Amino acid sequence: MNPVPDAYLGVWQRTLLTTTAGEHDRDTRVYWLQTAHLFADLRIPWPAPQTPQQLALQAGFAGVTEVRGEECQWHRAIDLQPPRASRDIGRMHFQRPDYLLEDGLDGSYHEVWERLPDSLGRSDGRWLHAADGRQGCLLLAGDYFLFAASRTHPLPPGSSLGELLARGGHAAELLSFELSFGRHQHGAMPWSIELSSLPGRAGQTLLPAAIDPNHADLWHQPALFNTLGANPPVAGWQLGDCPAIACVQECLS
């Protein structure tokens, strides 16, 4: 698969969502980190959710991005919410290099994205898997990172996490999907988490300070794979191949 155009690389913050259904949202904290192939997206309501029902309103996903002309499609390999039947495709227009407009193909929504200036430069990421069945990724863009880790078991069918909770689903398992976003800040506050889908995770560190994201052998440091995330796998994370688009579509169909 071809890499996305360089114009897409970095961290994009959504500053506006409007829909034909009347929604107007400037408050939800939304960040999309894009590398050459992999992406991750985190969406946390404001005020910060506290109860299980509020936490179930969060959204986030990760996978592979495909760009065809003005159309951008995000193939979700893992998702905090139950899998959606519709494809995630937007029509993109760069008004400026750091100011991107996204519109639904059916015209049902309009989003404004602004690129964070400190997200330019380094762009890297790896797909991960664990012996317990989890998948995830660690993505880097400039001074930012976004880590995603799926649940141990797939979600049962349902329209939303809220519905699954209402049906008596086990909250700890349903809400265990981790998406943690933050900055390395050139060593001043290494791997500092600013926003996470897991309560209490913001303000903590994703990885030990000794792990340098600029190190040439970053992806070969055992400490990275043994300590990554709020609940590292017992046997550690393993590097995996980038999910193939065909496999993502098959898994979610």
Rank of each mutant, 00 (worst) to 15 (best):
C247T: 10
L164V: 02
A36N: 09
P154C: 05
V30Y: 00
A216V: 13
M189T: 15
I245S: 03
S159R: 15
G229E: 02
Q249Y: 03
R115Q: 06
G182R: 00
G121W: 03
H215M: 08
A235D: 14
E114G: 09
V4P: 12
G158V: 03
V30K: 02
L146D: 06
R96T: 15
R84M: 06
Q221N: 09
H110P: 10
G125A: 06
L16S: 12
A210R: 14
W12M: 03
G107Q: 10
A7R: 09
A230P: 08
W12E: 06
A149W: 00
T35E: 00
F177G: 04
G90Y: 01
D212V: 03
L9S: 07
G240H: 06
S192V: 02
L100T: 04
C137P: 00
M189K: 14
C72K: 09
L195E: 12
A244I: 01
H215L: 13
R26S: 07
A36Q: 12
Q81W: 01
Q221R: 12
S108Y: 02
H37W: 06
Q54S: 11
C251M: 15
A141V: 05
P3T: 04
L33H: 02
F39N: 09
C251E: 14
L9K: 01
A223N: 10
I44H: 02
G10W: 00
H215S: 15
Q54A: 14
F94W: 11
L100W: 12
A244D: 14
A149G: 15
T227R: 14
Y8E: 12
E66Y: 04
T51N: 03
H93W: 11
A7D: 11
G121H: 05
D132A: 09
P117H: 02
E66M: 11
D98L: 03
L57Y: 13
H110E: 10
H170M: 04
R87A: 12
G121D: 11
P222E: 12
D79K: 12
S196V: 00
L16T: 06
S180T: 07
G63W: 00
D124K: 04
A56D: 08
V64Y: 11
L17R: 08
A148H: 07
A244G: 15
R14Y: 08
A166Q: 14
Q185H: 11
R201W: 10
A56N: 08
G104Y: 00
A56T: 09
T15K: 07
V30L: 00
D27R: 10
L100A: 05
S197I: 07
V248C: 15
T28P: 00
Q81R: 13
F94P: 00
E250S: 15
P82L: 03
F147S: 08
G240K: 05
A209S: 13
L16M: 10
L100Y: 02
A148P: 01
A59L: 09
E178T: 10
S253G: 14
G121V: 05
Q58W: 08
A77I: 06
P47A: 06
R134G: 09
T227W: 02
Y144N: 09
Y31R: 15
L38K: 02
L138H: 05
